[in-house]
């Protein structure tokens, strides 16, 4: 990789890490508040995995640009300005009701699985190796959220309506996951990362089948409101302020 590509890869990995960190943050908000105790546990575990994966991506990004992988991930999470985060808007939105949480998680999990499968073939071995490792854990997430899509889609009239509403709200937003990530265009020619748009057809096929089996229908509109990962919702400001409030009490202190 040349220097431009190293910088591009870091930007790409930070964006992936941001998706995981912010979604993990939302998942963690369920701890103690889920509909059944088993889900308090499951969602704490999901959050643990997502945030753990964010750390893996941030460490790889640090390696690519010669930053210290011990300290740089914390810098990225705690001392970056909110406008420098590169997550998709879908993960920023408040946790909503259980249907909203499940639909978002499912849409994300399928996309992530497809991306990880592609990244596991990367020409950059550290990336391929990390993706292969994470993929195993993500399979459990996907099974979990897919099972919930079915239960709630086919449960009661109310659960079906709530799921349909959530799907209506999230469907277009989820398409932002298939817009080019920061740095992507510098990396695809050498097969370091996949072309995001090429992952879309498989995702659509998988999720449409699952929704059909759960008596749910994606809406017609599928254009993401934002292409650009530097544009955020106001919810991200509150989230990042909360996340960073203790660390920023004294940036030089050891916590």
């Amino acid at each position: 990789m040349n220097d431009t590509q190293k910088q591009a890869l870091a930007a790409y990995l930070i964006a992936l890490g941001d998706d995981e960190l912010i979604l993990g943050h939302r998942d963690s908000e369920w701890a103690g508040h889920a509909p059944i105790l088993e889900e308090d546990i499951a969602f704490a575990n999901l959050a643990l995995d997502e945030i753990g994966h964010a750390v893996v991506w941030y460490e790889l990004a640090s390696d690519a640009t010669g930053e210290n992988p011990e300290t740089h991930p914390n810098h990225l999470a705690y001392f970056r300005d909110v406008h420098d985060f590169r997550c998709v808007q879908m993960v920023e939105l408040p946790k909503g009701d259980w249907a909203y949480t499940i639909v978002r998680q499912y849409l994300f999990d399928v996309a992530e699985r497809i991306r990880l499968t592609a990244l596991a073939q990367s020409n950059y071995p550290p990336l391929a190796e990390a993706a292969g490792k994470i993929k195993g854990e993500e399979l459990y997430h996907l099974r979990h959220s897919a099972a919930w899509v079915k239960r709630l889609g086919l449960g009661t009239a109310e659960s079906n309506i709530r799921m349909q509403h959530a799907l209506n709200e999230l469907w277009a937003l989820a398409h932002q996951l298939f817009m080019p990530l920061p740095g992507e265009n510098d990396l695809t020619p050498d097969d370091i990362v996949p072309v995001s748009a090429n992952l879309l057809p498989e995702w659509e096929a998988v999720v449409r089948t699952a929704f059909a089996e759960a008596d749910l229908t994606p809406p017609a509109a599928n254009t993401s409101p934002s292409r650009d990962r530097s544009v955020h919702t106001p919810y991200l400001i509150d989230l990042v302020t909360e996340m960073q409030k203790v660390a920023r009490l004294d940036p030089d202190a050891t916590w």
Binding site: S28, E29, A31, A44, L48, V55, V246
Partner: peptide, 28 residues
């Protein structure tokens, strides 16, 4: 649970999440 979202390092956050997860498991 109120401090998971503001734990001051990623490591502390992961440990606290694991702890709160364990508590749910103990309840179970």
């Amino acid at each position: 649970g109120t401090f998971i979202t503001s734990a001051p390092t990623l490591r502390r956050k992961l440990i606290l999440l694991a702890k709160v997860q364990d508590e749910g498991g103990h309840g179970q």
